[in-house]
Design a protein around this nucleic acid. Structure first.
Ligand SMILES: [Mn+2]
Ligand SMILES: [Mn+2]
Ligand SMILES: [Mn+2]
Ligand SMILES: [Mn+2]
Lengths: 219, 219
DNA sequence: TAAATTTGTTAGACTAGTCTAACTTTATTA
DNA sequence: TAATAAAGTTAGACTAGTCTAACAAATTTA
């Protein structure tokens, strides 16, 4: 029953996201606060409330983990986020880099009927416009094992499957380099000193930085 | 600039709605509070804040009116509400009586690009599923003069164009009586005592109460 | 017009969510 | 291991939005 707020949903989602990205189960207070753009004291207050609602496990000075229920809610929010991004991209002709910010709002609409009908309308998509998997109804967020462009040795071919950073600035840059989901990338060279890479996409060569490469997921 | 909150939007929308329905310009504090499901003291507090933001004109013990800016915001919220209702009904196969509650949430999503693209996707609809007009971008809420079924004399034919009450309970009842937008209604008889009417729709006769009849708009 | 009723306002309190400043615990480093 | 740094917590304050209880003004009714 007990209504879950917009803000609480964002904390739960952040916890899932951070532990997913870091590969570790526990999350720190400062880490969480930084991710949400609040002060550690604020995050600490909220964590006590989430603990009272049995959505996180949290002992003083220890790492935070989501309970089963907390994880379910977080996964549902991510499911909504990615379905809305797909809707904006596929049906409303939003560009790749515009969908995320609007989906941050839409993900909090409370109506399971709405999200199920939306999923059907989109014909049960498996991935969002950034290549991230869309959890199914009540489903887990399956952790598929993905490399970044940084892990590909010189001379090898790979295929881009997703992006890590979802910011508008980064996505526009990706497009400018001529890259997109499912593009084949040929790694031509890499500098020892700063990991600067030369890649070839659709016959065009570009130089990309280490920071850029670690935000491109490939197989 | 100054961010307008979810709650403030609801107060502005209620003010427009009430003065529109009553035909009078000024709205009372108690009336507003009743409509929003809050206490008069609460409404009074909020009205002071809206006055500080120049969204309402309001003097102690006097009636409340929207400023130009307040009216623009309220109209925009109604525009969003009705476009979302149309989307849910036309594209997601929601029924007539289900769309309103979800649209109450969707109307607060802040993105003018989203609402413009949605309008285009729906091919610029003029009316929502309840027969209410959809304001155009930056447009006014045009007050078309509509009669209710209660105003139609015995023996006359009329056409249903909209409903006043948007509650699920009422709309399901309307469907049960065999009525819908654009249906022709033949008024067969009316009791003096309690205004109970017998109407004929598509060859089927039904009895409807005064309360029912005043919630059906016809031409 | 005076009393009664309705309508609207004020004062004081509460919760959610946020902050700053001071403090404590844990981890790192010399 | 002791000092220093990093991470985490607490106390106290603030805003938005809500409430109850008491009061004041305006309107209606007798
Ligand atoms: Mn996103
Ligand atoms: Mn995405
Ligand atoms: Mn509605
Ligand atoms: Mn409607």
């Amino acid at each position: 029953m007990s209504m879950i707020s917009f803000t609480e949903e964002n904390y739960l989602k952040a916890l899932l996201r951070i532990s997913f990205d870091s590969g570790e189960t526990g999350v720190g207070t400062n880490e969480l606060a930084l991710h949400l753009g609040v002060k550690p004291a604020t995050a600490n207050d909220m964590l006590k409330r989430l603990r009272d609602k049995a959505l996180v496990d949290f002992e003083k000075y220890k790492k935070i983990t989501l309970t089963r229920e907390g994880k379910n809610i977080a996964t549902e929010v991510i499911r909504k986020h990615r379905l809305w991004e797909t809707f904006l991209y596929e049906k409303l002709e939003f560009s790749w880099d515009e969908v995320h910010d609007v989906a941050e709002q839409l993900e909090h609409i409370q109506s399971s009927k709405l999200i199920d009908k939306l999923e059907k309308f989109l014909d049960y998509p498996a991935f969002d416009p950034h290549g991230d998997p869309i959890p199914s109804k009540g489903g887990e967020l399956t952790k598929q094992f993905r490399k970044t462009l940084l892990d590909i040795p010189v001379g090898q071919l790979c295929k881009m499957v997703a992006v890590k950073d979802n910011s508008s600035a980064f996505l526009q840059y990706v497009v400018k380099v001529g890259l997109g989901i499912n593009n084949e990338i040929h790694v031509k060279s890499r500098q020892e000193f700063d990991a600067l890479m030369v890649i070839e996409v659709n016959g065009v060569e570009s130089s990309v930085s280490e920071k850029f490469a670690e935000n491109i997921y490939v197989v």
